[in-house]
Design a protein around this nucleic acid. Structure first.
Lengths: 226, 226
DNA sequence: CGGCGCCTTGAACCAAGTCAAGCTCTGTGG
DNA sequence: CCACAGAGCTTGACTTGGTTCAAGGCGCCG
């Protein structure tokens, strides 16, 4: 059984404060972003911890973030990956149920929750956007739960398709190591590796190197995805 | 492999329309409920179907509802159970990702989404309540995803604790059959049955009959829940 | 009282986990 | 520029938890 200890603390770096400009008439998401402060997080650093109050919400500009939880016995579970364009930190009822860590060096927009709420109070569009973002996050979480009750091959196919949907073309660059994929899919690293190899042998994908997947037969993967 | 065919259609029954009273100053949840129409759904009937637009949101008054999805090959997945007091139907971005069916004869409050949105537009409290409900639903979905990457015994313990948290005392009355529990936990009905028996043998629970579980040792279950 | 749906139990099987090498990058220092 | 070291990935052999297949029991309703 592989266990995890806590990640190193910040050493994060603020890039530039942007103040609180009032951008009326802009789309709601733009308005929310406008009150954010860009920051750099180094690979492996914690953005927020499990159990901390959700004081901020975030938007990934570049890089990748994982939402993870360490269980009492050391097992780790990854609840989501956030890629450029994604907002996260919405999973905080009273407190965050998961911690968030930078998978690679990442540039994040950090937005004060109170500020967004204030904005939402005066602007319906913003309030609606907040709800909509959370709704989308909910849909993703439910989708992952469905994935988790399937076979290893189906989970892997689902994961590849999920990643492919976010990549522009046929080539997927994975920012995360195999262990992260394993913890996301509820499998072991060995099973992830074997299953990817098997998908390659079935000519569904190509694996030029371990950080890259090339889609060769999307329909076949969708078939596997059940 | 057990497969599922579509459930019977409505035969639902409206109890009494309540109109659109304006209840200013009431708590947001009350205001939302006030614009709902109570309806009866018979055991097994569909409340809404997978892929349908989310025209309504619902509140369980009595009974129980399951959110489920049938996969292409006939496997079924249950995404959530909704018990008295729960609101559901919030998982509809453009359309419902899951269908909803009455587990037992159920009395539901049916609320037009458009009406809630209109209410939210003029009342911040309502808008916030909507967001908060969706956030809670998200937290539950993430929690279930964590559960799904554990062992059968841990899943079962988690399920029992989840149900116990909603029951007043030590006695849990399960409205759903074993097959529903299995599809919720991503297990087979046999494993559910065996695992419950095993928990009883460990003196963690008591099974007076198949619709009832009595908590005998909550702490032990929490231990198992990791 | 009989039949049927649902639940439990048993035995055999298999997918995924575990344990253990070995390989391949990638970065580093000589 | 190359050799080396280490982390991360792949592969193999074995084990095991959970599924599958099959039989039997229990309780409810007509």
């Amino acid at each position: 059984m592989l266990t995890y200890s806590s990640t190193s603390r910040p050493s994060l770096q603020q890039i530039a404060p942007s103040g609180f400009p009032q951008i009326s008439g802009a789309p709601a998401s733009r308005q929310i972003e406008a009150i954010g402060v860009p920051m750099l997080f180094k690979r492996g650093n914690e953005v927020y911890g499990q159990g901390e109050p959700g004081e901020y919400i975030y938007r990934v500009v570049t890089g990748a973030v994982r939402a993870c939880r360490i269980l009492a016995d050391g097992r780790r579970n990854i609840g989501a990956f956030y890629l450029p364009g994604d907002m996260f930190g919405l999973d905080a009822g009273p407190a965050h149920g998961f911690s968030a860590e930078a998978v690679t060096d990442s540039r994040l927009l950090v937005i004060r929750r109170r500020s967004v709420l204030a904005l939402a109070a005066s602007d319906n569009e913003v309030a609606r956007e907040l709800w909509s973002l959370t709704e989308r996050e909910l849909a993703r979480a439910l989708e992952r739960a469905v994935l988790l009750s399937k076979t290893a091959q189906e989970r892997m196919a689902g994961f590849v398709l999920e990643m492919a949907a976010r990549a522009a073309g046929e080539t997927i660059d994975l920012p995360m190591p195999r262990q992260d994929i394993a913890d996301y899919l509820g499998l072991t690293i060995e099973t992830v590796s074997r299953t990817l190899t098997s998908l390659e042998q079935q000519a569904a994908i190509e694996l030029p190197n371990c950080h890259r997947i090339v889609l060769r037969n999307g329909p076949a993967l969708k078939e596997l995805n059940a």
